[in-house]
Each structure stands twice: as structure tokens, then as C-alpha cells.
Design a binder for these strands. Structure first.
Length: 384
DNA sequence: TCTGGGGTCCTTAATCTA
DNA sequence: TCTGTAGATTAAGGACCC
């Protein structure tokens, strides 16, 4: 489930007079910053998230430009999760505006996947006034791509036997973890669609992407991904950073900023009962040159004075260029009391099941697309 | 030309340790 | 005690996501 133009939609809920108007959430025009979210009216003018705010203003000076109100968005996000919980407890919040839900077994109660999807959208809309796009599939990857397939207010259901056809014509850029840099590599290799990726020998991918990424993208191309939903992950770091309106040389100003940021980090850490051993200081100079320095202590802290002291020492000892500073930040990580298990979309499900799934998929693919794929992966052995 | 803030994970290199 | 080495840990940077 993916909420449509989330921040912008919340603003339109809050200010009915914004409805039907282009809304851009992010920095104010004239400030340094980017678009965090754009309403669909704003997107019609070519405004996209992550676009510099100056560019957005150029494209549509009449848009409503509003600063983000994260507390309110978090409220809405929680409310949506509560709505989902009325349908199933097996929910995982993937971000502030996305969640995965395990609806297997729900069919007996509610009917086919389409009905479940419609019900999810309906309840979210009734309860919060927001629209959501929903994708239903046999695993997280397919569900996610399904939710992206039709937006806004979309509903896409992909049955297991449709997975390969669904993926085949897709641009590889739709795959998870494939950003600008990796796209350049794929371009050089002449791979544009998932189908082309599928028929590229694994060895060739490994040469250009490294073993891990090659295997990850190959699996995705076959529609193989984890299907496990786990709620409550726990964060792994807390950080605060700020970009100055104009670059700063004055070390007193930098120290003051670091003090404020350290206090923010410490407050959040205490509120969440976390305490970190690693302190990280981040700095960005004019020209977007960015550096981090970190220090791992034997003891953990959520004390602002200690965080500040370490961050300032890192800054002074860092042998960094003496240039005007654009951004400065501080964070803590590496909690004392062990870390919760983690997953990402490259992670394989339980190994044996995955192997079975791979072999089944390879059979299906080779039947459909011919021998290209047989060059992928190790030879099959008995009983494997 | 302009690029926020808050995160996660991966790769690589240097250093420590058995 | 010296030496080589494999493996773990730390540190830094980069890619990516929302």
C-alpha cells in the first residue's frame, strides 16, 4: 500500500482551499532545498520530488509552496496503519507512506485479492480522506511494483503465474535498488528491459556489477523476492543535519549549530530509549564535497554534551579542507543492546524454499524465453 | 544548474587479532 | 620469538530510498 502524493495530499486535507491546486511540499522558493512531495496538479507542470525548489518555482510560480509538517504526516501515517490493522495484524510499515501486509489466508474471510485490495483502499479513504495505490502479489517485490503500476488510486493484482509476463516489458530502472549510477551501467550493457536482463548471462552482469548486485538483480528479474512481513524493526541510527542559507566560515557558528543538532539527536535518543557507541560528524563544503568522520567509543551515550564533544573533536581533527561549509550534521548509531534482525529486498527467503523457488522459476522462464537463462547460475544437482 | 533531511545497506581499505 | 595470513572490526565513502 502506497499513499498517493502523501505529504501534498495531507496538506490538501488540512487546507481544503488547496484542493485542485498544484501543491509543492518542501523548501520555500528562494531558499536552498528540494521538493519533498508534489500534488498531482503540480506534477502536471513537470514538478517532481527531489527537484530543486527553484526549478519547481520556474515551472509553476502559482503553485502553493508549503514547508513539511512532519508531525502531522506521522499522525496520518499512524492512523493509516491502524486502519490496516483492522484487516490483519501482519503489517510492516516500510516508510512513512508505504506498508506491506500479508493477506494470505484473508481470502477465506473476504474473498478474492481484488476485493481485499478494494476494501483496503476504501477504508483508508473513509477514515483519513487519503487515496492509496495498492499492489497485490506473491512477494514484496511484485506487490511493490504492482502498487507503482497504476497511480494514483490504483489497484493491481498479479497472480503468481502472471509474474514473469508482468516483469518482462518493464524498464530495468523499476527494479529495487537500481538508481542513476547502476542505470548507467545497464545502459552501457544495452539492457533496457527486465526481459533483456533475464537473458543476459549472469557472468556478464557480475563483471560489471559485482557478485552480490548481479545476483540480486537476476533474482528480481525472475520475480524472486522475500515474502515475509515483519512488523517493528527498530531504527539503527539517529541523525540531524542542516544546510545553511549561505555557506559558513565562522567556527563559532559551526559549533553552535553542532550543539543544537547534538541536543536534537540526544533528545530523540532518550525519548526512544536508545544509546549509541558511534558518533558520526558530517560536513559538506561549497561544491557539494561531502565527508563524514566517525568515532566508536567503548561506552554508549545519549548525552548531548558528550555527542557534541566527540563531534567537535572529529571536526577539528579531521584534516578537512578549510572551505566554507554548506551543511553540517551529527548522528549516533551502534546501540548497546544488540540489533534487531534486518532485511532488504535482496535478502533471500529461507534458503531451501528459495532454492525450490529458483528452480521452479528457471523452468518456467526457460520454457517461455528459451535457453538464454540456462547460462545463469550453477549447474543443477540432484536433490538440490 | 542545483542538488533537503533522515535513513539503510554495500564496498573497500586499513588495522587489529588469533 | 618471528613471520605470514585469514578473519573480524573499524572507518570512510557511495548508492539508493522515501
Amino acid at each position: 500500500m502506497d499513499l498517493d502524493a502523501f505529504f501534498a495530499s495531507v496538506e490538501q486535507q488540512k487546507h481544503p482551499e488547496y484542493q485542485g491546486r498544484p501543491v509543492v511540499v518542501g523548501a520555500q522558493p528562494g531558499q536552498r532545498g528540494v521538493v519533498a512531495a508534489a500534488s498531482y496538479e503540480a506534477r502536471r507542470h513537470g514538478i517532481r520530488s527531489a527537484m530543486p525548489i527553484a526549478e519547481a518555482y520556474r515551472r509553476c510560480p502559482d503553485a502553493v509552496f508549503v514547508r513539511p509538517d512532519m508531525d502531522r504526516y506521522r499522525q496520518y501515517s499512524r492512523h493509516v496503519l491502524e486502519v490496516l490493522e483492522t484487516l490483519s495484524p501482519r503489517i510492516e510499515a516500510a516508510s512513512i507512506d508505504e506498508a506491506y501486509m500479508d493477506v494470505s489466508g484473508l481470502e477465506k474471510l473476504m474473498g478474492p485479492p481484488e476485493i481485499i485490495g478494494r476494501e483496503i483502499k476504501q477504508r483508508i479513504h473513509t477514515e483519513t480522506g487519503l487515496t492509496a495505490s495498492v499492489g497485490i502479489g506473491p512477494n514484496r517485490l511484485i506487490a511493490k511494483l504492482g502498487s507503482d503500476y497504476r497511480k494514483p488510486d490504483g489497484l493491481t493484482v498479479i497472480a503468481p503465474q502472471q509474474v514473469l509476463d508482468f516483469l518482462a516489458p518493464m524498464p530495468v530502472a523499476n527494479l529495487r535498488g537500481l538508481g542513476r549510477q547502476t542505470q548507467k551501467i545497464f545502459e552501457r550493457l544495452g539492457i533496457e528491459t527486465v526481459e533483456q536482463l533475464r537473458t543476459t548471462p549472469l557472468q556478464r552482469l557480475q563483471q560489471h556489477l559485482g557478485e552480490k548486485a548481479a545476483a540480486g538483480f537476476s533474482r528480481q528479474a525472475l520475480g524472486i523476492a522475500p515474502d515475509v512481513i515483519h512488523s517493528g524493526q527498530g531504527r539503527k541510527s539517529i541523525s540531524k543535519e542542516t544546510t545553511y542559507g549561505a555557506d559558513v566560515r565562522d567556527t563559532t557558528v559551526l559549533h553552535d549549530t553542532l550543539r543544537r543538532l547534538s541536543a536534537d539527536v540526544a533528545r530523540t535518543a532518550r525519548k526512544e530509549g536508545l544509546s549509541g557507541r558511534v558518533v558520526t560528524m558530517k560536513i559538506r563544503f561549497a561544491g557539494f564535497e561531502t565527508y563524514t568522520r566517525q568515532y566508536k567509543s567503548t561506552t554508549s551515550t545519549h548525552d548531548e554534551r558528550e555527542i557534541l564533544k566527540t563531534a567537535w573533536r572529529l571536526f577539528q581533527d579531521s584534516k578537512l579542507p578549510k572551505k566554507p561549509v554548506r551543511l553540517i550534521g551529527v548522528g549516533i548509531s551502534d546501540w548497546q543492546d544488540g540489533q534487531p534482525a534486518q532485511t532488504d529486498l535482496f535478502e533471500q527467503p529461507r534458503q531451501q524454499e528459495d532454492d525450490k523457488q529458483v528452480l521452479k522459476t528457471i523452468d518456467a522462464v526457460s520454457e517461455k524465453f528459451g535457453k538464454g537463462l540456462l547460462q545463469v547460475g550453477a549447474p543443477r544437482k540432484q536433490g538440490q
